[in-house]
Design a protein around this nucleic acid. Structure first.
Lengths: 353, 353
DNA sequence: CTGTTAGCGCATTCAA
DNA sequence: TTGAATGCGCTAACAG
């Protein structure tokens, strides 16, 4: 016997509750049972039989078998979501938006966390392909590495050729994109600082290989250049996209360029580290001595002291938008999600001198 | 023809790449192909054939079909994780721990967010049963509602009878439990306040129906009683487990009992709201006029001003522990995960008066 | 409106 | 070691 479950007919009474058993119990064919239990809206089954099937299912405690359905229909109702780290509020926000939208479509979300390892990302795309996910959502930024990116794209392309859909938060050169205006946001931040009189501005940046970091940096630099200022490499320090990274980077930056009057941190996590470094390690006042701007507008930004001025990114919306894109027949128009600058208390006029 | 994919034999060259096709390409039987591609460690296939199958798979770009495997083996490699809200750092931490552990076992995690709706929670347990998840992890607190809890337990029991495993963060009366010492933590917090001289202590609590809230409240009350103090109902205000909830509750509590010298918030989110209310709305100093203690020790707690004194809960560890429990053959010993009080700047001696 | 039936892709038993 | 054959639970023609 291939399967211990199906030894004799008598044995079946103990086995799992299948559609087959429900059908028998209701005295109908398995096709009819399938139609009432799984058939989409089109109710093509008589009232009487429908009732019988439904109560049989209830009595037996029938639970449908998604893998079997997937095999038969060759399509599932799961969406794969790949993030760097669920504990990072940035990704948590995207995930929350995605799950909200998924629920409306009765889709389930399978999350994979790469912990920032591009190899793992590729591996997960493969797993999700194996799961026959209906679509894949890449939430994180890509890296600037041809080989890695190439392998990822190949995997993604294979997935699409098999009928899967792909959406990315930010541009990744494959699938539908939910663009986030990193450049514009950084430009806004830099411009605001300039407007406040700051002329010597530094940047605390995340990992240099992340496309997101490059974009934000480019946006800030370009804005400053246009305004007649500058952003030399000496005023940029790269570190981890974390609180500790921000703290270390701020210390290094300010040691190297003590005359800076403002610092733009490329995400809020780093900004909180910058604030801590300036206040606790350097004993300088924000925004009195130094203005600080963050990026993302994560929930805790308003609770920092001073409350953080930061670039707001519509992360939840992006997550929702991504799954909408994925399930839509025709993607249609998809306006750029707007970024905005949220001015709070960590920025002020440049000190004269 | 039942399926458009399998019209003629010639047509198959266009169809999906299946094990069958890999086998043909390699000139072996499908059984052999299965053994080399999916067979666990036990390599019972000759070197030559193994090599042929592997290269055939690579050339054809074979990706295994998890639903088909699931059907054939009647077992999957997915774990369902049910949380209230992924964007809540409390759950994000648990999820991160769970994903870390899952990765070690090459298991995938399917996350469902209930948005605090018990009905939805039941619905998701059912979906995850349908997915034939190998195990279920309930991360959130249960509610004190017999009917709802009964239905949930019934669903969970059915799952277990079908061979699924269940683990809960906190006690929920079913499956393996990863106990979190809410009572002990609250007692620690209350005791510390008492030690600092506080005698009139209030509590800003989350939703009264949550078991977690009841436990924490009970722990605080019991500790105070033992110390010779008290915690009358008039000094407890219930609200949402959010920043806004904390703010509103603090305002109400302090209006009602103006002579309080300390407030225990039952989670950090609420504590941040309390801090904001006391500082911005009431213009009182923390900890000068009023001490504030939080609960959970979420990442942002140290960045609040004043830095929040709070009860640390090992959330990531709990998430890891839960999936370990689930995959282990024999659960073995599982020591209570320790809670501790992290004393920072939001607590100080009670003002005399 | 209902039943019959042929697969979906794979694991596994049994024989060879 | 290897292959042939069977069934996992369900869907979707197709026939009636």
């Amino acid at each position: 016997m291939p399967n211990p479950r199906s030894t004799t007919r008598a044995d079946r009474s103990t086995g799992a509750v299948t559609l087959q058993r429900v059908a028998e119990h209701a005295g109908v064919s398995i096709a009819t049972a399938s139609r009432v239990l799984h058939g989409g809206g089109t109710r093509t089954v008589g009232e009487e039989l429908r009732r019988r099937v439904e109560s049989a299912a209830r009595e037996l405690g029938y639970v449908s078998n998604a893998p079997a359905q997937a095999l038969a229909r060759s399509s599932t109702s799961v969406i794969g979501l790949i993030v760097h780290d669920v504990a990072d509020p940035y990704f948590a926000a995207i995930a929350a938006g995605a799950m909200r939208a998924a629920r409306r479509q009765r889709l389930m979300i399978m999350i994979a966390a790469t912990f920032r390892d591009p190899e793992l990302e590729i591996e997960y795309v493969r797993s999700l392909r194996a799961q026959r996910a209906r679509a894949l959502l890449l939430a994180g930024s890509g890296v600037e590495d041809e080989a890695l990116t190439g392998r990822l794209i190949a995997e993604l392309t294979g997935f699409r050729e098999d009928g899967g859909r792909v959406a990315c938060i930010g541009e990744r050169g494959v699938g539908l994109a939910v663009p986030l205006d990193h450049r514009g946001g950084a430009a806004r931040a830099a411009t605001e600082l300039w407007r406040l009189g700051h002329r010597r501005i530094g940047v605390v940046a995340g990992p240099a290989e992340l496309v997101t970091v490059r974009e934000r940096l480019a946006g800030a630099r370009q804005a400053l250049l246009q305004l007649g200022g500058e952003l030399p490499d000496s005023r940029v320090v790269f570190a981890d996209f974390t609180r500790a990274g921000g703290r270390d980077a701020a210390l290094e930056l300010l040691a190297r360029e003590p005359e800076l009057t403002a610092v733009l941190a490329l995400n809020d996590l780093m900004a909180s580290g910058v604030l801590a470094a300036v206040r606790d390690d350097l004993g300088r006042a924000v925004p009195g001595d130094l203005s600080v701007v963050g990026f993302d507008d994560l929930p805790f930004a308003a609770d920092l002291r001073p409350a953080l001025t930061t670039v707001r990114l519509p992360l939840e919306e992006a997550g929702e938008r991504a799954v909408q894109l994925i399930i839509e027949e025709s993607p249609g128009e998809r306006p750029l999600l707007g970024v905005s600058l949220v001015v709070r208390d960590s920025t002020g006029p440049a000190p004269h001198g």
